[in-house]
């Protein structure tokens, strides 16, 4: 890849230095290590890949990780949109504190979130006990995993939607009203289309984060192979067995998925920029 400067030479100095350092740093820290994974993957035979992915344990882990992340991101999309709306449009006591707290999952170490959520949702915990009486097992079940995933990916939709909602021109909503639209029609036909790209971007980010999440999930999941074992944990187990080819095979698909999500997020953001309010 060449990052050539086009056009005339800039008068601003430092291109070689900064570009050189950036590319070197990123290569050493990210690109070369990630290509190692590719190298290991290249050594895998089709047979090994087939064995890995036909194993019911691998499939169950993928089903759980993808399904759980999808549900967690979906829950966050709905509540995130609602919370963003409330934070932008309404004034009520405690709004600022709530707004600040939204970032907590980004700042809180995932292990701390993991043990705390486990303490809440374990059968001995305050909510876990209630759910247990109702016959619902929260911790050490897929539900617990979804709760942990929802926790770590909670801020994304709120933070992508808030600024767009803030920027919606007052005149556009007024125009809808003068043309006879009621509040619901104005929301569905005018506001929602404007913020949809942002909501979807947040959804994709939340999904990407939830799929790869490890720290908060391992405590609450119970880690039973085939039932409550997520993909990152399976990779971890294979690494602890020094089964590098096995780990590589499982990780490869997750990594490809990450690249696809990154691409999707980029496309969504480009779309969001195009349809942002004038």
């Amino acid at each position: 890849m060449r990052f050539a400067r086009s056009g005339r030479r800039s008068v601003i100095p430092g291109f070689r230095l900064t570009m050189g350092f950036s590319v070197l740093y990123m290569s050493l820290l990210v690109l070369i290590p990630l290509s190692t994974l590719g190298l290991w993957a290249g050594r895998l035979s089709w047979q090994e890949l087939w064995t890995t992915f036909s194993a019911s344990r691998t499939l169950a882990a993928y089903r759980l990780s993808l399904g759980g992340a999808l549900i967690a991101a979906g829950v966050n999309a709905v509540f995130g949109l609602l919370i963003a709306w409330v934070l932008v449009r309404y004034r009520f006591p405690g709004r600022r504190i709530l707004d600040t707290l939204v970032d907590l999952p980004f700042a809180l170490p995932t292990a701390v979130a993991g043990i705390s959520l486990t303490a809440i949702y374990a059968p001995t915990g305050i909510l876990g006990g209630l759910l247990d009486k109702a016959g619902i097992q929260a911790a050490y079940s897929p539900l617990g995993i979804i709760i942990a995933m929802a926790f770590v990916s909670l801020p994304f939709v709120i933070r992508t939607t808030q600024p767009v909602l803030q920027d919606i021109d007052r005149e556009v909503e007024e125009a809808a009203a003068t043309l006879g639209a009621n509040r619901l029609q104005a929301f569905v036909r005018v506001i929602l289309p404007a913020i949809l790209p942002a909501v979807l971007t947040g959804f994709a980010m939340a999904f990407a984060r939830a799929v790869g999440e490890y720290g908060s999930v391992v405590f609450i999941s119970g880690n039973m192979p085939g039932r409550t074992e997520i993909v990152p944990l399976l990779i971890m187990t294979r690494l602890e067995e020094y089964n590098y080819p096995g780990a590589t095979a499982v990780a490869l698909v997750l990594l490809v998925l990450s690249f696809m999500m990154l691409l999707a997020i980029n496309l969504l953001q480009a779309w969001a920029r195009r349809s942002a309010p004038v």
Partner: peptide, 18 residues
């Protein structure tokens, strides 16, 4: 405003851009 049957043309047009 919905019931007044006024046509309002906004300064910055307020067209629905999508």
């Amino acid at each position: 405003v919905r019931q007044r049957r006024v046509g309002f043309v906004f300064q910055h047009y307020a067209l629905f851009r999508h």
